[in-house]
């Protein structure tokens, strides 16, 4: 059952991804992206990571994608987007980049070992609940990266406000 669900989610994610890239109507693309995020959340659920699954939907589907939609509404209006290729005569460059990426992924996967690692075993996470286990890991072991990420986001927020705010005359 779990394996069946995994393959369903995995194949759906890949299929939806390809459909999104190929869809000419950007709003349809966003809708399919929404479905894709739900399948990603399903994959997280299969890993017993229920907190991540919920946050995935809340943050990506609930906030980021709505902003995308907002931008699409303000920029393009319903017409299908037709633009000439970014690099006119260089299809081979695309192939080179794709093959290079593929080799990088293959090399990366070789370092991946199956099984559990570290202090948080499946039993321990099940006992603590995933939310608590993740909170503990973030606020103790990984507090520095967490704070750094927070600082980077703060810089982005300040930058966004600085860009959006018009200067008042005489100020």
């Amino acid at each position: 059952m779990v394996q069946f669900l995994f393959f369903y989610f995995a194949i759906a994610v890949i299929g939806l991804g390809i459909t999104i890239v190929n869809s000419r109507n950007p709003v349809h693309g966003v809708l399919l992206m929404l479905v894709l995020f739900f399948h990603m959340a399903g994959l997280y659920l299969l890993l017993n990571a229920e907190f991540l699954a919920a946050v995935q939907v809340i943050v990506y589907a609930g906030a980021i994608l709505v902003l995308y939609l907002f931008v699409l509404f303000l920029v393009t209006l319903r017409e299908e987007v037709r633009i000439s290729p970014f690099i006119e005569k260089g299809y081979w460059m695309g192939f080179v980049i794709a093959i290079a990426m593929f080799i990088t992924f293959i090399k990366g996967i070789q370092n991946f070992t199956l099984g559990e690692h570290g202090a948080y075993t499946i039993e321990k996470i099940g006992q603590l609940t995933h939310t608590k286990a993740m909170g503990e890991a973030i606020y103790t072991t990984y507090i520095l990266p967490f704070e750094v990420a927070g600082l980077i986001l703060l810089v982005a927020v300040v930058g966004g406000i600085a860009l959006a705010k018009r200067e008042r005359k005489g100020a």
């Binding site: 709003v27 699954a53 809340i58 589907a61 609930g62 709505v66 609940t129």
Partner: peptide, 28 residues
């Protein structure tokens, strides 16, 4: 009775806004 009940409700309520936004857009 799930452990992330409150987050689940937040997730679904964020989905509801899509219905509203897309209905507005698709009506033309």
């Amino acid at each position: 009775n799930i452990n992330i009940g409150l987050l689940y409700i937040f997730a679904l309520s964020s989905l509801a806004s899509y219905g509203v936004v897309l209905s507005g857009w698709s009506s033309n």
